[in-house]
């Protein structure tokens, strides 16, 4: 079934282009940073700052510690968002009564960005871990729930009918048909949620924290250590991309039929 394709010159050209564009970005960075006014540190300075970071950790927490602090917050918030959002999404997607009752409530809260919850969360949970995780929960719940709900309502009727004429119960229909056909929508939702969670955690950490990548950026900014700021930004980008890659991998593992078709 696999198509065999000859590698053409054009393929090589297209494969080289990304490398070129990254090199160009670095070149541009070098050019801008080597100016007199020093609006941005040079790549070399950022590199040196990174090395120093390993010798003298910030706030006695290693780089890995900071990364893990941020990732952990996102994962915990996301975990709760999945545990509640997926069943909730399945429920309003599948049961018409639940949909009529719960969907309007959800639609009311839905357009409020997670960051708007900061004052309330701080009031309720203080400035510790709980309020950060609650904030991430607010941000990640929406994509998980919306995607689950959309996935359920897009389950092909024909597949449901097949199960019904084989005498499947309502529960079997949800388990055997709705769940697998919704799975990839749910995973896509989790992927979006990770992106949102990553934004929210940084914002939360910038406001008050003594660990995490958001905290690292603010520390750099407070002491005018721009090299540290840039380095933290790079790490944020890399970790964000890795999280997304993990989900793509998971999607392939859990929904092999999707990859097969593409």
């Amino acid at each position: 079934m696999k198509k065999i394709r000859n590698i053409t010159r054009r393929d090589v050209f297209l494969a080289v282009l990304p490398v070129l564009s990254i090199l160009m970005a670095i070149g541009l960075w070098l050019l801008v940073s080597s100016g007199e006014d020093h609006i941005i540190p040079t790549p070399g300075e950022v590199y040196e700052r990174a090395v120093r970071l390993f010798e003298k950790p910030i706030n006695h927490v290693s780089l890995w510690g900071h990364i893990w602090a941020s990732v952990k917050r996102v994962l915990i918030g996301l975990f709760f968002a999945c545990v509640t959002g997926i069943p909730f999404g399945l429920l309003i997607g599948w049961n018409k009564t639940c949909r009529s009752v719960l969907k309007p409530l959800f639609d009311l809260i839905r357009p409020i960005p997670a960051l708007a919850w900061i004052p309330l969360m701080t009031l309720w949970f203080g400035i510790g871990e709980t309020s950060k995780i609650a904030l991430i929960y607010m941000g990640t719940l929406r994509p998980v729930l919306v995607n689950t709900y959309a996935g359920v309502s897009m389950t092909p009727q024909i597949n449901i009918d097949v199960a019904r004429v084989f005498g499947a119960s309502q529960f079997q229909v949800v388990k055997d048909i709705v769940m697998p056909s919704t799975l990839s929508a749910i995973l896509a939702g989790i992927k979006t949620a990770l992106g949102t969670g990553w934004i929210v955690v940084l914002a939360a950490e910038m406001i008050s924290a003594n660990t995490g990548l958001g905290f690292m950026i603010i520390r750099g900014s407070n002491v005018a250590d721009l090299a540290l700021v840039i380095f933290a930004m790079l790490i944020i980008g890399i970790v964000g991309a890795l999280l997304s890659a993990v989900l793509t991998f998971l999607e392939r593992k859990l929904c092999p039929w999707k990859t097969v078709i593409n």
């Binding site: 024909i158 597949n159 009918d161 097949v162 004429v165 084989f166 799975l183 039929w257 078709i261």
Partner: peptide, 12 residues
Amino acid sequence: SFIFQEPSAFPW
């Protein structure tokens, strides 16, 4: 058993 007119294999 019912064989539907449209394709109805479960893709997953």
